[in-house]
Design a protein around this nucleic acid. Structure first.
Lengths: 120, 120
DNA sequence: CGGACACCTGCACAGCTGTGCAGGCTTGCA
DNA sequence: TGCAAGCCTGCACAGCTGTGCAGGTGTCCG
């Protein structure tokens, strides 16, 4: 295996074989970047609380999310805008109420296996 | 269930029952904060690459990590300092070489089920 | 002993991010 | 039609974060 890109081929290595393994493990740079962006959205206590509430409880309105998390409604609105831009949640209008739900299954997996500690 | 704290009890709600469910789902605020900090450490492409390499390949030296990720060694060193402070990785000295490995099993779960898409 | 190597630190800079407040828009109800 | 409720936006501010460079410390080998 010779996975070291040409622009770093002249650098010294301790264990060249393991370096190639590591490069294979990291995989596509774009894939890593996409996940880093996902994690960035999970990296705020407010947004994480919103996602946990949506994952467990299902469709919820902004006002209810604000009460449940202790945030003010502009903060919830702002957080949901970011989560929507990242494709993690989606809102559905019902009269003057908009109910949001979690649509990113990969994030749902992370919440289940990571934060909530589910084994299944 | 009356889980709404006293300081928000006077706020309007759309569906009070679901609000209580959501509060139960969010759980302890400290737990959420701890996970948000973990996700913040995963939210950088460089650090995420390092963690993926360490998770799959095992103990690796700073120099090898730098070559594998394309980062410069001070950047790797800085990233590892943050990861060590967060308790995600741990280093072991071997002569003038320090090999790092992933020690946070919860993060390992997230990497496996989330980023790497393992089903088991 | 001296030099090369592996790793770490300090510092200064630019960029992003979360937060609060005030206010506006749309919808539904009396 | 008028008012209240639900939701959204803009703006300004403080705080954190990643980055690069120069240089320092400790370790090994000839």
């Amino acid at each position: 295996m010779h996975l070291v890109p040409a622009d770093r081929a002249d650098r010294r290595t301790i264990d060249g074989h393991r370096v190639c393994e590591a490069i294979a493990a990291i995989g596509d740079a774009e894939h890593v970047r996409a996940w880093a962006e996902r994690f960035a959205l999970l990296a705020d206590p407010g947004r994480l609380s919103l996602l946990l509430a949506l994952y467990e409880t299902g469709p919820l309105a902004v006002t209810d999310l604000a009460v449940a998390t202790g945030m003010r409604d502009p903060a919830v609105s702002q957080a949901l805008r970011l989560l929507r831009a990242g494709g993690l949640v989606s809102g559905e209008r019902d009269g003057r109420i908009i109910r949001y739900r979690l649509v990113d299954t990969a994030v749902a997996e992370v919440l289940a296996h990571g934060v909530l500690g589910r084994q299944d």
